[in-house]
């Protein structure tokens, strides 16, 4: 059975998305993407939410975070070390300033 946790026990951090002029509050136990969805914000495009498709690619300009493994097809080692990440795979550990819309839609069909 899952542990019951009250929202008051969980730290919440402000996330500023500079390119969209948006900000929202994100819980430490939610990824930046899911935290955004829960708040009804529209600051990062939503894809698979599992680190696979690359749609939520962002660049972290300021702030601390923890990361889970994400697809190397979308975040190379060089990109990882310069702050690129998939928003669905990182958890905030401080206030964060990020830039979204870094996904290059090579897979998108021309319509």
């Amino acid at each position: 059975m899952s542990t019951q946790t009250t929202a008051a026990d969980i730290q919440v951090h402000r996330v500023q998305v500079v390119n969209r002029n948006e900000e929202y509050q994100c819980r430490e136990d939610k990824t930046l993407l899911v935290g955004m969805e829960r708040r009804g914000a529209h600051a990062i495009d939503i894809g698979c939410r599992g680190g696979g498709c690359g749609v939520c690619k962002i660049r972290v300009l300021q702030g601390e975070y923890e990361r889970k493994r994400m697809s190397r097809a979308h975040i190379s080692e060089a990109e990882e070390s310069s702050g690129y990440a998939l928003a669905c795979r990182i958890f905030p550990r401080s206030e964060m300033v990020i830039e979204s819309d870094h996904y290059e839609p090579a897979t998108r069909q021309s319509k």
């Binding site: 894809g47 698979c48 939410r49 599992g50 680190g51 696979g52 498709c53 697809s71 669905c88």
Partner: peptide, 8 residues
Amino acid sequence: FFDPSGNR
């Protein structure tokens, strides 16, 4: 729906 690695 998606698996935890993003495969649909």
